[in-house]
Design a protein around this nucleic acid. Structure first.
Lengths: 200, 200
DNA sequence: CTGGTTATCTGAATAGTGTTCAGATTATGG
DNA sequence: CCATAATCTGAACACTATTCAGATAACCAG
């Protein structure tokens, strides 16, 4: 284990909670959501093993908190990716729709261990927080509305748009990540999805 | 931790490797793929903590082995589920296709922790074993061929059949399991998939 | 039936883990 | 400036994976 103590001038750390989260994310990226060690975090942050328990009741809640944080990161990544294609034309709508899927997949491939943390049962969503309030879901919804409004997609498919698109992209990302499908399969999936949904 | 020793008459266990696997599956079902403990397995099986290392070099290879085993279980579950709908009619083809998805989802819901083990990065597939040799994949392929042959699906969607169907079902199962979509969304997904693929 | 070989399992040890808690330290507000 | 509250430490407990020398028993040749 690396014992890279971060320099600290005072007895109090200053911003320990955030430092713990950042260190945890870094370690999860390297070692996976399982294999995260509270003690390794404290060594990295330069603090005693018990200090973290002032901010997180246990390891699982730290992991869950990071999960929440990552869903926000993914959403802002998607937001940024579709800013390149503004406008109400059918062409722009189609590009935005496709880009949402691509951004989702790119995130999964670039950060496999964070993706596993988000969707691997380490931070299951409670019933309280509805998926409908999720920022990514709202963007997908709007992209589908735009597709229909611009005439790029027949309205008969609209009711199934969210669930089909999200499930497809999630499933393909998952399967490719774990080696059950080749990496180049993702563009094929998007082609197939658009063909099936009559997007043109 | 439960210390339920299995009775053993002799110094040698007799079938320790299989007993370890079965106990591991049982414990993973209860506690999840992370939280699996080698020591708890040995206590359950009634053997010393180091005995397991005669059959598995470490915990990770035991988990990977169990993953392989579970893919076989899932495939045989699917096989059994479509035996109810034999024949070459369009109706039978359609029922088989739908039943494959349903069986996959049922497995995920009935055994969430085993599903997480299979697709959560605990036993990533190596490049050697191609997905094309997977029994479930072969069944899906045949179901799609039957759909086209019986006239229940336009052939223009055929090239995307495997990846669309598998990704959809995998993604929806994953998302529902982790609380990102409601349980009743799965039948909607199948409706949408069949509508989009022109299955009728 | 005997004795040696080999597979199998034990016991103890090492090093690392999550978590708790009494107490030490320091920031902060009156 | 001092009391209070927030923050962090150190030591402890019970647990974990993994290694390895040695104990045990199955098996097989004579």
């Amino acid at each position: 284990m690396s014992v890279l103590k971060v320099s600290r001038d005072s007895y109090h750390h200053g911003n320990l909670q955030e430092a713990i989260i950042q260190s945890a994310i870094k370690l999860i990226r390297k070692n996976g959501p399982d294999h995260l060690s509270m003690r390794e975090i404290s060594y990295e942050v330069g603090v005693s093993p018990s200090a973290a328990y002032h901010y997180f009741p246990d390891k699982d809640s730290l992991v869950r908190g990071i999960g929440q944080h990552l869903f926000g990161e993914l959403a802002s990544m998607i937001t940024k990716s579709i800013e390149k294609f503004p406008g109400t034309s059918a062409r722009a709508s189609k590009l935005r729709f496709r880009e949402i899927g691509r951004a989702y997949f790119k995130w999964a491939v670039k950060e496999p261990n964070l993706f596993r943390l988000m969707f691997g049962g380490f931070c299951s969503s409670d019933e309280q927080t509805s998926y409908k309030e999720d920022a990514s879901y709202i963007m997908l919804k709007k992209a589908l509305d735009d597709l229909v409004a611009s005439g790029a997609m027949p309205s008969k498919f609209r009711p199934y748009g969210e669930i089909l698109a999200w499930s497809c992209v999630q499933g393909a990302s998952n399967l490719i990540l774990e080696g059950h499908l080749p990496k180049n399969a993702f563009e094929d999936l998007l082609d197939g999805l658009e063909l099936a949904l009559g997007v043109k």
